[in-house]
Design a protein around this nucleic acid. Sequence first.
DNA 1: CTGAATCCCTTTTGATACTG
DNA 2: CAGTATCAAAAGGGATTCAG
Lengths: 130, 130
Amino acid sequence: MCDNLHIHGLKMPESMDEETRSQLCPVVYAVSKLGGKWKLIVVHNLIDGPLRFGELRRAIPDITQRMLTLTLRELEEDGIVNRHVFEVVPPHVEYSLTEVGQGLESVMSSLGDWGRANFAQKRNAVAQTA
Amino acid sequence: MCDNLHIHGLKMPESMDEETRSQLCPVVYAVSKLGGKWKLIVVHNLIDGPLRFGELRRAIPDITQRMLTLTLRELEEDGIVNRHVFEVVPPHVEYSLTEVGQGLESVMSSLGDWGRANFAQKRNAVAQTA
DNA sequence: CTGAATCCCTTTTGATACTG
DNA sequence: CAGTATCAAAAGGGATTCAG
């Protein structure tokens, strides 16, 4: 999975800093971009299409306005999310995935498969055995 | 992706707490299990097979002993990682993925694909155009 | 409606020292 | 080797207020 260094071995130079090293392993780099508490959840909610700020907020009831703003800004900086401002009053701002962000679709779907297979069975465990 | 509720709509009952709600969406649930700063990195390093505590520590140079211990304990609690203690001196403890943990392989590989495609090009961008 | 700014608290993480 | 304990620092996050 790491095609250019042996992260499992002893070959990685320990002198380089974290950011430099993360660029050597695609997985480590990906995790560094998606690591926040809310990033994957926001991406997940944008997979099906653009949403407005308020729509995102309602879709993720536990996120605060502040955290949603911060998360969206970081995703935007990393080229994962697009921010489209409609110049009207009242303001209308739409968020969507960039091409890079849409590339996460298979990540999200395998994550969903895993969650469904391993944890979400409680809902219908009875139904299946009945 | 959420087959049992409309997370994009207004249908989600806002009264339930976060844990209850997370179980309604496989993606949200998965993220809640893998959300920590180090969890995916540790899983990533165990994909190819069991590793000892010290091997993991060397494979993840930026993690502290303490965080590695905490991360492994949580992964163990969640049934993602197995802990196998060899009763010898000096101590020998091996960590491996459970079946549930191995189910994350496609997640890790699509994460790696995404990282490789979008961020890790800096290394050989020149080589490709040359 | 969207979001910036402030204040303040909680959780997470790191450094260090110690142990079977 | 594989941890645990303790303390301190930092990051994360919430509540509220204000603004275009």
